[in-house]
């Protein structure tokens, strides 16, 4: 089953991003076709060189980088959210696939379950 995890929160303001990624990993372990879409402030999660030593938190980038090892098939990022924040996909800390708004609509259409 195609399961999409749609993440819109800023990575370190709350635990939501970490906990949603944990659910995505479990879905992948359950042999589902898992995709993650970062949108809005969640795109900050993919910034390179995240130094969490003074936050005493887990690095969100580290979890994102590990997604392929767990067979999470796609890490998508909203192109518009990147542009609004002056970010470019090829300068992020992990490889991502960027999606336009219409491509995101198509992704939502073909996802059988969306967890956000």
């Amino acid at each position: 089953m195609n399961v999409l995890f749609l993440i819109t929160d800023s990575p370190y303001r709350t635990q939501r991003v970490v906990e949603t990624l944990e659910a995505a990993l479990v879905a992948a372990v359950f042999d589902q076709q898992v995709s993650v879409l970062l949108k809005g402030d969640a795109v900050w999660s993919a910034l390179p060189d995240q130094d969490v030593s003074e936050l005493d938190r887990r690095s969100v980038l580290k979890i994102l980088t590990a997604l392929p090892e767990y067979d999470v098939e796609h890490l998508y990022v909203c192109a518009e959210s990147l542009a609004e924040r002056g970010l470019e996909a090829d300068t992020l800390g992990t490889p991502v696939e960027t999606l336009t708004a219409s491509e995101q609509r198509a992704l939502l259409d073909r996802s059988e379950r969306v967890i956000s």
């Binding site: 399961v3 659910a23 479990v26 967890i115």
Partner: peptide, 9 residues
């Protein structure tokens, strides 16, 4: 969390 994923399926 597996319970959530199973239920979702």
């Amino acid at each position: 969390l597996g319970v959530l994923i199973e239920a979702a399926i």
